[in-house]
Write a protein that binds this DNA or RNA. Structure first.
Length: 123
DNA sequence: ATTTTGACGGCAC
DNA sequence: CGTGCCGCCAAAA
């Protein structure tokens, strides 16, 4: 696994619950703003579901992948709602309220080492 | 080695 | 505010 994917993993894992981050921000955080697209690949190919909260990574517009290849609603949307992420549309989040950027101080009382596997297991 | 294609982003219209 | 096009970089064909 390349170091790139590893960094992406680290950054995305830091996104607090109820907040989202854009691909561009993640790419920039790892020092390669041009590879925003590549970050998306890392998410899509994201290994074991639950290992990475890829559902918290959205487009710069706030849009997120709400549907999978089969056109079925993706669990991402449900998870975002469940986490209390403010949504503007069925596939848009309110970046104005939940836009979190890496590098900033973590939200108080928001441990980044949550057991996502267990969270997903609830589904 | 060359072409195609993106879970992107920014700017123009 | 929605759409289109181009630029980026790397992997896949």
């Amino acid at each position: 696994m390349g170091a790139f994917n590893d960094k992406v993993y680290a950054v995305v894992s830091q996104i607090p619950e109820g907040y989202v981050c854009t691909y561009g921000d993640v790419a920039r955080a790892i020092g390669q703003p041009r590879k925003a697209l590549f970050v998306g690949y890392a998410m899509r190919s994201s290994t074991a579901p639950g290992a990475i909260p890829c559902h918290r990574v959205v487009f710069k517009d706030g849009r997120f992948w709400a549907y999978d290849e089969e056109g079925n609603p993706s669990p991402q949307k449900i998870m975002l709602e469940r986490e209390g992420t403010p949504l503007l549309d069925d596939d848009h989040v309110d970046l104005k309220k939940c836009h979190w950027t890496p590098g900033t101080t973590d939200v108080e009382g928001r441990p980044t080492d949550i057991d996502w596997a267990a969270e997903m297991g609830d589904f």
